[in-house]
Amino acid sequence: MILKPREVPTELKTLRLLRPRMNLPDEQRYIYLEKGFKGEQQLDAWLEDLTTDCFVINDPLLNQNRNFFQIDKMLIFQETIYLLESKYSKGDFFIDDDKWKTISGIEIQDPQLQLKRSETLLRKLLQQHRMNFSIESTLVFTHSEFYLYNAPPKLPAVFPNQIHRFLEKLNRLDSKMTYKQNKLAEKLLALHLDKNPHTQFPDYDYHELKKGVVCVSCRSL
């Protein structure tokens, strides 16, 4: 049961409106948000065949002691909460001495860091509200042209060619939603924040924006 459907992030929605009418000060930020949202939509499509009894909460934005964190997809099962973080990375990467690098040797940010942070903060949040659930966090790489060399077997990640087995694993879980799970879901939805205080929007002057009708298909005037 989807308790919170996925919506276009406010920042991306705003940049989509402004982009045809002005030169964005940070075009790469817009591209990054578009790719991220596309990856989240792919994750949603892959999990449409999820049949196990569970609650689905998309993009919950939570605050634990002034530490804000957002999760791409949260699945609440009978005893376990699954945190899924989609990554729409394209190309070849490898892990060298716990460092993530592109095939050309450029070091990139470890995608596990954000997920580990979210897991830690969620665990503290649950403890604060006296709710006892185990948490499992998984990276889901959603781009068909992604490949990771030297990936350790215990890496908490699902690659495109593994998604069907991952879905089968979830569908085999013995899960039933009871008062306990309903209470958790209601609490998380009540704690969800509609606005991220760290979101920054570009400055613009209405009179300097290009006027006209934007095409729905190609998003140009």
Rank of each mutant, 00 (worst) to 15 (best):
M1W: 00
I2S: 11
E7T: 14
L12F: 01
T14A: 15
L15R: 02
L17Y: 13
P20W: 13
P20K: 08
N23S: 15
L24M: 08
L24N: 10
L24P: 09
E27A: 14
R29Y: 03
Y30W: 12
I31Y: 12
L33H: 08
G36Y: 08
F37L: 12
E40D: 05
D44M: 05
D49N: 15
D49K: 15
T52S: 11
T52G: 01
D53I: 09
F55Q: 02
I57Q: 02
I57A: 05
N63S: 09
R66H: 14
R66I: 07
F68Q: 06
K73S: 11
I81A: 08
Y82G: 11
L84S: 04
E85R: 02
G91K: 10
D96L: 11
K99R: 15
W100T: 03
Q109C: 00
P111H: 09
L113F: 10
Q114R: 08
R117W: 07
S118K: 04
T120N: 11
L122A: 04
L122H: 06
L125H: 09
L126P: 06
R130M: 08
N132G: 04
S137P: 03
F141I: 02
F146C: 00
Y147L: 07
Y149I: 02
K154V: 03
P156H: 00
A157Q: 00
P160A: 06
P160R: 05
P160I: 03
N161W: 10
E168H: 09
E168Y: 00
K169H: 14
L170T: 08
K176C: 01
K176D: 01
E186P: 03
A190Y: 14
K195Y: 08
P197I: 11
Q200A: 13
P202I: 09
E208N: 12
V216P: 07
V216N: 13
R219N: 13
L221S: 07
